[in-house]
Design a protein around this nucleic acid. Structure first.
Length: 441
RNA sequence: GGGUCCGUAGCUCAACAGGCAGAGCACCCGGCUGUUAACCGGGGGGUUGCAGGUUCGAGUCCUGCCGGGCCCGCCA
């Protein structure tokens, strides 16, 4: 008998197959009994009818409890009444391994959902639930879509180091790690500086990996360990990477809509909101965004914003509410952005940068800029910020030997997945979240 | 770093103003030939987060500790 995965069950109608998985749920009306089996690739209803299976198999139903590892064999049937459209008519059942204790997470009754703290203590088991399973499958689709996107455009993947001697931006708090005679080095907060070197060597590059921030941020948008995708392109201007960012976000969204419909349905995600994500995205400047906030304030909304400062999360939400798709905000004041961004030649008080704000209050998913490519100007900025010049000498070399305009951005995987899946917190969209107060499991 | 809220059964929650710690789900037993969060009947299950205090009497009031939630800042 062929052993198959539930994901592929549609190809085996009217054939005998074997499924290996776990008991997700069971129901009975006496002589007809139903199992819901999950095998990691999907969920499948299994039916057993008294008299049509041997009694010793039929009676095994009574022994089954949640998450027993089981092997079921039977005939695949198209069946309207079954969730998913297919079910398995049971012929044989093997209990491979019993659950030794009551499963700590009730999976059937929504009103029984434990509070978030308990769920995260059982994260290793929680990921077996329908919703978490769906979210992690959407994450996988997003990650693969990203790599397909860059591969199709001739980008080379370029992996920057995780151990770094100094802060990229000189501001954020980093995780120190002892490193031989070197004393302390830090876990990377961005591969950007290294990617700029990569772009000068390989033209179009991107990185895809974990990033670390030691800030004790306790919000639905922050983790201490999160994943970022960072493309960097030689000879590219701000406009070039804005087009790239827009295409990337549209492509990711399309792929999820195309390949993860069922998961979005399980999550009750409003698909229409994602279908609206098409080019072009609205593009406004910092000044225009500030004007929007002023207008909303005059309409009586509670907005605490001073011109010249960065937008807080409430302000981002107010701005994003005006549009049905992500909004790109450009030309922020130089004072609130890092040293490596290139000032706008038309207005040197602003920099050539872009933030992409996701709809529905999910906040900034992309931050990018055109980089300062002038040696003297960059050196001046490093000194102005009081950064250790020695540590940046290699970075300055990139401007010394054939400097060209170049631009790039970083996209936060968790914020993007949280937005697409409608998750309430980024810690739900990574298998094992790391936050200031949680390092286990 | 700041603000705020909460710890009662494996899980979600009750317990009026301080007076015998209870219900639903899960688990165990019984019933039901198409269930969809199945349903119906019965049963077992508690260091009320921990340590003190007030009181005839504390889940409830007071103090300390521990654990957790939510929001803001910083950012992706």
């Amino acid at each position: 008998m062929e052993r198959v995965w539930i994901e592929d069950i549609g190809r085996y109608a009217d054939r005998d197959v074997e499924i290996r998985g776990w008991l997700f749920n069971k129901r009975s009306s006496g002589k007809v009994r139903f199992l819901v089996v999950r095998d990691g690739t999907g969920f499948l209803q299994v039916v057993m009818v008294k008299g049509e299976v041997p009694d010793e198999v039929f009676n095994l139903y009574d022994e089954l409890t949640y998450e027993d590892a089981i092997i079921v064999r039977g005939k695949v049937k198209r069946e309207k009444r079954a969730p998913g459209g297919y079910e398995l008519l049971l012929k044989d059942l093997v209990i491979h391994s019993k659950s030794l204790d009551t499963f700590p997470i009730p999976k059937v009754r929504p009103e029984n959902i434990p509070d978030v703290g308990k769920l995260f203590r059982f994260r290793h088991l929680w990921i077996r639930s329908r919703k978490q399973w769906s979210i992690l499958r959407i994450r996988d689709e997003v990650e693969r879509a990203i790599q397909d996107f860059f591969a199709a455009r001739g980008f080379r993947r370029f992996d920057p180091p995780i151990f770094t001697p100094a802060s990229v931006e000189g501001t954020t708090t980093l995780f120190p790690v002892p490193y031989f005679d070197e004393g302390e080095v830090y876990l990377t907060q961005s591969g950007q500086l290294y990617l700029e070197a990569g772009a000068m060597a390989l033209g179009k590059v991107y990185s895809f990996g974990p990033t670390f921030r030691a800030e004790k941020s306790r919000t639905r948008r922050h983790l201490t360990e999160f994943w970022m995708v960072e493309p960097e392109v030689a000879w590219a201007t701000l406009e070039d990477i804005m087009d790239l960012a827009e295409e990337l976000v549209v492509y990711i969204t399309e792929r999820v809509l195309e390949n993860r419909r069922m998961e979005l349905e399980i999550l009750n995600r409003d698909v229409a909101k994602l279908e609206a994500v098409k080019r072009p995205f609205p593009r406004i400047t910092y000044d225009e965004a500030a004007r929007i906030l002023l207008e909303e304030k005059e309409k009586g909304r509670d907005i605490d914003f001073t011109y010249g400062e960065d937008f807080g999360s409430d302000e981002e939400t107010v701005i994003s509410e005006r549009y049905d798709r992500p909004v790109m905000i450009t030309h922020y004041p130089r004072a609130i952005k890092p040293f490596y961004m290139k000032p706008d030649p038309k207005d040197p008080s602003k920099v050539l940068c872009v933030d992409v704000i996701a709809p529905e209050g999910y906040g900034e998913i992309i931050g990018g800029s055109q980089r300062e490519d002038d040696y003297e100007e960059l050196l001046r900025r490093i000194r102005e910020e009081g950064l250790p010049e020695d540590e940046y000498s290699w970075y300055l070399d990139l401007r010394k030997y054939g400097s060209v305009p170049h631009s790039g951005f970083g996209l936060g995987i968790e914020r993007t997945v949280a937005w697409l899946s409608g998750a309430s917190h980024v810690r739900e969209v990574i298998p094992f979240a790391r936050t200031p107060e949680r390092i286990r499991p």
